[in-house]
Amino acid sequence: MRDKRMTPAEVVAELSDGMTVGIGGWGSRRKPMALVRAILDSPLKNLTIVSYGGPDVGLLAAAGKIRKLVFGFVSLDTVAYDPYFQKLRQEGDLDVTELDEGMFQCGLLAAGHRLPFLPIRAGLGSDVMRTNPELRTIRSPYDGEELVAMPALHLDVALIHMNRADRHGNAQYLGPDPYFDDLFCLAAKRRYVSCEQVVDTFEGPVQTLLLNRMMVDGVVETPNGAHFTSCVPDYPRDEQFQKLYAEANWDSFVDRFLTGGERGYQEAVRAWR
């Protein structure tokens, strides 16, 4: 079996400008932040980001990496709104596809199943339809009910963070929620999974083995790689640091934490604490 271990920089080197990148996790929970930071270190630009948005979106927005965002919400959970995303929406020029959360899941599932769309009720009558005029409804051939035809959300790349993985791409979540990380992988052409620890064998119930190696192209060991989002049971959200991020001046935040690569970041966080 293939050894798929890579560094964050090697993952980013396989991405190119203008790609559609799906980012796993949820809000400020188990986000592949080390991979996001690696994108910040690269010249990549004009990305379409597809995310249940948290500080992944905020960081990429602040760094000018996003051309278009596909999202249902952007929140830091304990901080209601991400300030960098807000600023880009209010002052910048961001193309958005804003969806209901369930439509978002439905679109990933359609892509994973190689279907052009899936029917769903969510969206009917709401401004999801007005603000995304490309969306169409469809009538049931059985009883005539009108439903939204949610188009497949195809991804060039999926970026995921898990608690454990082996070198072949089998991967495990150990917290209470898998989020939608398997669907992101199924919807994407190339799939990269960072993890707290690369292991030879897994411990815990088989139901926690969310990703198998058919769904993964690269494995990156990044301890504390979801920081400052939560990655339970390995660690909770770093609320103090998130607050610092949300209230910081962007340039000084970059100078202090984002200029020395992932190792520099983790050292700067330790020094700050």
Binding site: G53, Q90, M103, G125, S126, V128
Partner: peptide, 16 residues
């Protein structure tokens, strides 16, 4: 927007 809020979240699906 003059003020970006949370997003649609699950509101369209809930109400439908």
């Amino acid at each position: 927007p003059s003020r970006q809020l949370l997003g649609f979240r699950g509101a369209p699906g809930n109400t439908a």
